[in-house]
Design a protein around this nucleic acid. Structure first.
Lengths: 228, 228
DNA sequence: TCGACCACCAAACTAACGTTAGACTGCTTC
DNA sequence: GAAGCAGTCTAACGTTAGTTTGGTGGTCGA
């Protein structure tokens, strides 16, 4: 009646040795958490998806928080790595727009690589404070990378100097990450389509010839201080 | 030992008559849910904030789902009303950019009017399916309004015709709604600052003179069909 | 004065949660 | 073949969630 270790009746590949099942659990957790959120995903859900029972998870992890913390870190690191790799491949001076490249890499990481990135973005605002704090370091490093990227573009004249780079970055993150709420991989848009459209709108603008001339924004804020 | 009806030791104003406490409960729920999310806000939390005990909530509502459903609807209706009012005040033809006006109204509704809008946006993705379905009608109507607004702008030449209006709308929603994750009312930016910066970037673009010429996006998708 | 009713409370219920303890199986090693 | 370890199981723990039940004080029309 007891199942043999490392063989599930679902036929899923669990062929690798011991330590790999830790990753297997994380994979299943990421897939569930990305869809259902943090609180709505129970350890029993994760265990069932991994082909085991809830108690067995504690052989691999000390707590639910540890699972989620590790998930969060993997997620951010993957996006970060993907974006940095893509941007560095552009060379210096870059052969194409840094922003466009970074946007495409970020969105590819979210939608095409694995579930960790989407999960980590989606639940970052709903996890307990301790978990969030543990992931803040990686998060900040990634944001800092974007910050430098935009500053570099601005210094080279690729961005209008009067554009607030902090807000630009936050808007880009918003537009990209919010896609988790609506993007359907089976739909009419490819990830590349979406990324290109976003870069196009944000870089070249969407206003047409008949647009009402709006006065350029007053720069009320000398030194933008960002919180969090 | 039993407290007098309509008087709490916290000194909070519960002076209004009976039916109003239903709204009072919703107010408290919205404030908590906006900060903590759906699952992390318990009925005991809501009850305590309302100056009563958990069981008493059931005199006013049939379930937690009913509370949240009503909250969601109020939230969407408030933003919708605010945006429509602001845009209609522009006249026809509009005296200023419809997009800029709508963006500012949406963000004012989220951050300055009450907690319902922020709460509803924030938890829409984490709420049980039944609740989400109940709120989908209002939601779709609001999105449809934006859709028409952008189509109108496009028809009048205020938007570049090659810009995908569906994606533009989704990007705008993303940038605006994501501000819930980072915007600090006590910080250096006013809501108007943020709204104006977003309109400026999205309408006029952020690219500078030294930008690498990026080829305009191919329109691979003849008829963009949106899901959800 | 009195009963009806409104708005609430205290206390409990069931279900589910994260977590723990101990037993068990199969594999490896001496 | 006994010992030991790795990995999982069963079963239960205490807590907390949403929810239900029966009651209670205050208000008010008759």
């Amino acid at each position: 009646m007891v199942r043999t270790a490392f063989s599930t009746e679902s036929g899923e590949a669990v062929a690798t040795e011991g330590v790999a099942s830790r990753r297997h659990i994380l994979d299943c957790a990421a897939r569930l958490v990305r869809r259902q959120g943090y609180a709505a995903t129970s350890l029993r859900d994760i265990a069932a998806a991994s082909g085991m029972k809830a108690g067995s998870l504690y052989y691999h992890f000390a707590s639910k928080e540890e699972i989620v913390t590790e998930m969060l870190n993997i997620g951010v690191q993957t996006v970060f790595g993907e974006v940095r790799r893509s941007v560095e491949a552009l060379g210096d001076p870059p052969a194409a727009s840094r922003v466009e490249t970074a946007v495409r890499a970020h969105m590819r990481a979210i939608f095409e690589i694995d579930d960790y990135n989407g999960a980590s973005i989606r639940i970052f605002g709903q996890v307990p404070p301790r978990v969030r704090d543990a992931a803040l370091g990686e998060r900040d490093a990634y944001e800092e990378y974007w910050h430098k990227l935009l500053e570099q573009d601005a210094a080279e004249g690729r961005l209008r100097p009067e554009v607030d780079r902090t807000l630009l970055r936050l808007f880009l993150f918003g537009a990209m990450n919010w896609a988790l709420e609506w993007y359907d991989p089976a739909g009419k848009y490819s990830v590349t389509d979406v990324a290109r459209a976003l870069s196009d709108i944000v870089l070249r603008g969407s206003a047409g010839a008949g647009a009402v001339a709006s006065k350029p924004p007053r720069r009320r804020v000398p030194k933008p201080v960002e919180r969090r």
